[in-house]
């Protein structure tokens, strides 16, 4: 977890305000218990807010403590004096019974209100999530439009790359813009690379067979649309993608060749 980034995201301020949903708050509480620097940060935010709100108090409230303490329940400040034993009539019993019923009624009512309030909160939190999803969807749509514009360019040539021995199901496409020397790799149908491995894209020229690396499909997992843009200055006759150790290799590991495709002659 990137703690610096987490702190600077602004979530901790909302946490102290109480402006997060219950679920989000619990999550922050967990992080806070794990990382001392997050705790320190929260304490400082709290201190600033404590001082700010204290400054808006109209006067000193210290003196009120006495009257508050007098009203505290469950303390033995006031002991009731012993009363003479009285005979208990049926009126007392029914009185108690009535109070008990009333209490039960009140309690049920209170519970129901609380549940409703909780439901409302959840609904509000869900709304926020939906809004974020819509915003994301909009962004994705924009990305898709841009992609479409790229592959529709008249200088673009599409080269399909077929799955090879290690991965017959794999498939990829290269959209090669020969004018601005860019190769867009659509790697949607490549399996996710195992840990510590990365896909490397090669431009190949035949006779003699010369592979030239044009780059890595970095952050494969995190990339949503799995389209990567790489610079390709070569007079490529074919493209191939191999699985290489992290950081890439000088020459392709041929037994890890996932996909390969030749450029159609002009």
């Amino acid at each position: 977890m990137d703690i610096k980034k987490y702190i600077s995201s602004g979530i901790l301020e909302l946490y102290v305000y109480g402006a997060l949903s219950e679920k989000e708050s619990r999550e922050v509480s967990r992080v806070l218990k794990k990382y001392p620097e997050v705790k320190t940060e929260v304490e400082e935010i709290e201190k600033a807010l404590l001082n700010l709100s204290a400054a808006t108090a109209p006067n000193n409230a210290e003196h009120l403590i006495t009257s508050i303490k007098d009203k505290l329940t469950g303390t033995s400040a006031k002991t009731t004096p012993e009363r003479p034993v009285r005979t208990i009539s049926w009126i007392t019993y029914s009185g108690w019974a009535a109070s008990l019923l009333l209490l039960i009624g009140l309690f049920t009512f209170f519970n129901r209100t609380n549940n409703l309030r909780e439901e409302l909160r959840t609904a509000q939190a869900r709304n926020v999530q939906m809004e974020e999803q819509i915003a994301n969807a909009r962004e994705n749509a924009k990305d898709a439009e841009e992609l479409l514009a790229i592959i529709r360019d008249k200088n673009v040539q599409r080269i399909p790359l077929r799955g090879q021995e290690v991965a017959p199901e794999a498939y990829a496409s290269v959209y090669w813009n020969t004018r601005d020397n860019t190769a867009y790799i659509d790697a949607k149908d490549l399996p996710e690379p195992p840990r510590g491995k990365v896909y490397q894209v090669w431009s190949l020229t035949m006779q003699p067979l010369t592979p030239t690396s044009i780059g890595l499909l970095a952050d494969f997992k995190a990339d949503d649309n799995k389209v990567f843009s790489l610079e390709n200055q070569n007079q490529s006759e074919a493209f191939g993608i191999t699985l290489e150790p992290e950081g890439g290799s000088e020459t392709p590991t041929m037994d890890q060749l996932y996909v390969l495709g030749t450029v159609a002659a002009p």
């Binding site: 807010l49 404590l50 709100s53 204290a54 808006t56 108090a57 000193n60 409230a61 210290e62 009120l64």
Partner: peptide, 9 residues
């Protein structure tokens, strides 16, 4: 109390 008082006020 002071901070709480400020919020309430």
């Amino acid at each position: 109390s002071e901070s709480t008082y400020g919020i309430i006020y």
